[in-house]
Structure formats: structure tokens, C-alpha cells
Amino acid sequence: MDRLAITPPEALAPAIGHLAVVGLSVAYRGVPVLSDVTWSAPASGLTAIVGPNGAGKSTLIKAILGLVPSTGRVTIGGRSVDAMRDATAYVPQRATVDWDFPATALDVVLQGMVREPGWFRGYGRARRERALALLDRVGLADLASRQIGQMSGGQQQRVFLARGLARNAAILFLDEPLAGVDAASERIILDVFDTLDRDGRLVVCVHHDLGTVSERFADVLVLNKTVIAAGPVALAFTPQNLARAYGVPLTV
């Protein structure tokens, strides 16, 4: 892939192959957070990761992306994640950053292109326009020059989504993108998901709301420190599997 080329937001997802996790374990100070996670992700489409609090959902995303120390193997198309870095995009939880930071919505979206221009250079006009187009896509074109701390939670979440989109990645990992957002933001985010789905990208999304899994996602990974079940929602998202993950009977 040509690093210097400025890809339009709607560029097609390159065929990069399949995401596979084999025997992934994470421990924090000797306490296991994830143990022996083996998961073969679908080629594309929308996948939800669900599980109780402390199940290691966010940690799984971070471990896949190499952001926390882990043992085991993660490959994309048979190659290491480090080698396939530009096939991935990460949209972290909103609460992980300080929104008082002196930056505008446009500044944050541009961060998704941070490695494109190279050292010494600024982002340049073409990338600014691309970032503006991405803000438009999440319904925030009017707020491009607003300080990020002066936006609502839902708007901040959409800025983060636009920054993730700016990486033009084939696989997007999102950590609770729908947590605590208003109805308008939720509609826009789900709309973007549908576009990503149609583009043939893979969206892996930590999701907290079990009630909406079936209508919004095609695949699911039910997690509680290890894989309880994975596969198409119709097969894997069953009351039995959820009861095993949550430890209590649940109806969905």
C-alpha cells in the first residue's frame, strides 16, 4: 500500500485475509484476565463481543492489537498484527482520554492519518478536506473547529469513530462505541456500521447491550475470560451460552 497516497474515505477495503486468534492469554500481576482465547473471526461484517463485566472484552481487543502484553498468537492473513498494522483501526472508549485537551474535532480526526505525511510535515490541505468529509459522514461537519471538550458525549464518540475511519482499515475494533450516546448519535454510528459492512470490512465491537445484539450484529463472540461461544448470532447467541457466560439464566 502506498503510504503517501491520500485515500478517499470511501476507498474499498483491501483484501487482507482473515483474523485468527490462537491460545491468547493475558494476565495482570499474576491474575489471569484472559486465558487461552482461540477465535476465528468472520471475513467481514459486524461482530459483537459480549460478556459480563470483567470478562476481558476490552482486554481482548487490546491484546489482539498488541497494546497489552499477552501470550499466544494473533494473525491477520497469516501475518503478525504488527506487520498488518495499517489493516487495523482502533476506536477506544471515550473515557480513556482527557477531553479538555487543546484540540478541535478536525484535529482529532486528522490523528487517524498521523503516519501518512511523514516526519516534519503537517497534514496538508487534502488530508484536512478528507477529515472534513469524514466529520460530515458522522454528522459533525458544522462542529469541525469546535474544541472537543465542548461537545456532547455522543458527538465525542462520533469524532472518535471518524478518526478510526480515517485509518481506512479493513478491520475496525471498537470499544463500547454505543455506551451512553444519545439516540441521534446511535443512529448515525449504526448507519456508518452498515456502510462498513457493505464495503466488506470487518467491524469487531465490544457491546454491552444484549437486547440489541440480534438486530444489529451478524456474528457474536460470547466471552468470559475465555471463549464461551462464537459464530453467527442465530447459532451462538443462545440463552444457554449466555447463562454459561453470565453465570445466571438470561432471556434475550
Binding site: 482502533y90 485537551f101 485509518r167
Partner: peptide, 23 residues
């Protein structure tokens, strides 16, 4: 500071995203 201005800005705002982006 000038050479790495956009990288430093991202690193200060969101170091985890910086690492996830391959910086």
C-alpha cells in the same frame, strides 16, 4: 518539537491510539 509536532500532539492526547496506529 517541530519535526514530530503531529506525533507528539497525538502521543499527548491518546498514547494508546498512537501505538495502535503503529507510531
Amino acid at each position: 518539537l517541530a519535526a514530530f509536532r503531529k506525533e507528539f500532539a497525538l502521543l499527548a492526547f491518546d498514547p494508546v491510539f498512537a501505538r495502535a496506529s503503529g507510531l
